[in-house]
Amino acid sequence: MTTRSLIATLALALALGATGARAEDEASVEPAKEAQIRDMFVKQGYEVRSVGTEDGKIEVYAVKDGKLYEIYLDENLKVLESEED
C-alpha cells in the first residue's frame, strides 16, 4: 500500500469508527419507569424534558425556575448527581 492510500484508509476507518463508537450508549428506559420518574420530578416542581440513559445511569433533563438541570439516577431512582447548567 502506498502512503497515500494508507492515509485515506485511516481517515475512513477513523470516521466510521468514531461514528460506530457513539451508537451504543443510548438505551431507553421502560415506559412504566419513565412515567414514575417524570411523576417524581413533576411533584418537585420540575418540567421534565427527557429521560434517557448515559453510561449505565438514568439521565433526566429538566427545567425548574428557568434553570437547566441534568440529573443522574441509579436503577432504584436514587439521585446520584444533579448538575445545573
Binding site: 485515506a8 481517515a11 470516521a15 457513539r22 424534558r49 429538566a62 427545567v63 437547566l68 441534568e70
Partner: peptide, 30 residues
C-alpha cells in the same frame, strides 16, 4: 434543553460531517 430531536439532529449532522470529511480527504488525495 433536553429536547431529544435537537440532540439527535446534532448527532446526525456530526455523523454526516464525518462521512463527508472522509470522502473529502479521499477525494483530495485521489
Amino acid at each position: 434543553w433536553g429536547i431529544r430531536w435537537v440532540k439527535e439532529l446534532h448527532e446526525v449532522a456530526v455523523t454526516w460531517a464525518e462521512i463527508s470529511v472522509a470522502v473529502h480527504v479521499v477525494a483530495v488525495i485521489w
